[in-house]
Simulated scan of single mutants.
Amino acid sequence: MDELCRAHLPLVHFEVRAISARLPGHVFTDDLVSAGMAALAMAAKSFDASLGVPFGRYAVRRIRGALLDELRSADWATRSLRAKVRRRDVVHDGLAAQLGRRPSDAETAEALGCSVAELERLDADLHSSVVLRLDVITDSVGADSVLPSTADTPEVALVARERAAYLRDAIEVLPQRLQVVVRGCFFDDRPMRELAEELGVTESRISQMRAEALKLLRDGMNAQLAPELVEEPVNAGGAVARRKAAYYAQIAARSSYRDRLTLPAGVTEVPTTSHIAG
């Protein structure tokens, strides 16, 4: 039995290739091979050499029958639906040959003796009966064509790079003491106590400086990317307003548009957008 199976294994693959050439792409041929192998084993087990029939001929019939059974079990369309589709196809092809062009739905429906709505329902029923396998889709056309993509588009990547560059510039032109707090808190993960000792202030003052720096960073970036989000100063001619305007101008002059867009990825490991927005 084992020798018969090993010697006739090519029969299974030959029959699977022959039948799969006439099948839609979503049919998984590995399932057909498994069914064919099982049929070959059953044929070897039940084969009676005394009947004078060559084993190859006997096994091929069993294999073909098993492949058809496997296809029927995987087909969600009923026999009546398949019969209607075959009749539709015959009528459609006949009209195309007669008219010398592709017939319209109305012409096909009239030849079939049904309404256009019934013809459309037939197509909908057929399409709903097709089961697609994800592994076949990804092998044949690629997962990117059927699954939502999580990759950034070029536009999103450029905007993110420009924001990172502006954030880098905004940090580098902060007042020195605020820059020490920002880098200590967000770059070096230093405790506030240590920063307070270095700057000669209290921990609560470090917390205030941190909040002040983040507000400056947020407003500085908004001044470049979304000026409408920057609050108008109460006293436009006051010292605070002038210092802020000078800070915004320093950020704008720090780098060129080309420099910002060519910023290498990962250069600015800085406070996140959520930190700045807070």
Rank of each mutant, 00 (worst) to 15 (best):
L9Y: 13
E15F: 01
A21L: 14
D30F: 04
D30I: 02
S34T: 13
M42R: 14
S50T: 15
G52E: 06
F55K: 01
F55R: 00
R57E: 14
Y58L: 04
R62E: 13
I63Q: 01
I63T: 03
A66G: 06
L71H: 05
R82P: 00
V85H: 08
D89C: 00
H92I: 01
G94T: 14
Q98I: 03
G100Q: 08
R101F: 07
R102F: 10
A106W: 04
E107N: 01
T108H: 00
T108R: 00
C114Y: 03
E118S: 13
L126Y: 15
H127E: 15
V130E: 13
I137A: 15
T138R: 13
G142V: 06
V146I: 15
T153W: 05
V156K: 08
A157R: 14
E162Y: 14
L167T: 09
I171N: 03
C185D: 00
F186H: 09
D189K: 10
M192R: 10
L195C: 03
G200V: 04
G220K: 04
A226Q: 13
V230L: 01
E231I: 06
E232Y: 07
P233S: 09
N235P: 00
A239P: 11
K244P: 00
A246T: 13
I251M: 08
Y257H: 15
D259V: 03
L263A: 04
A265M: 09
S274D: 13
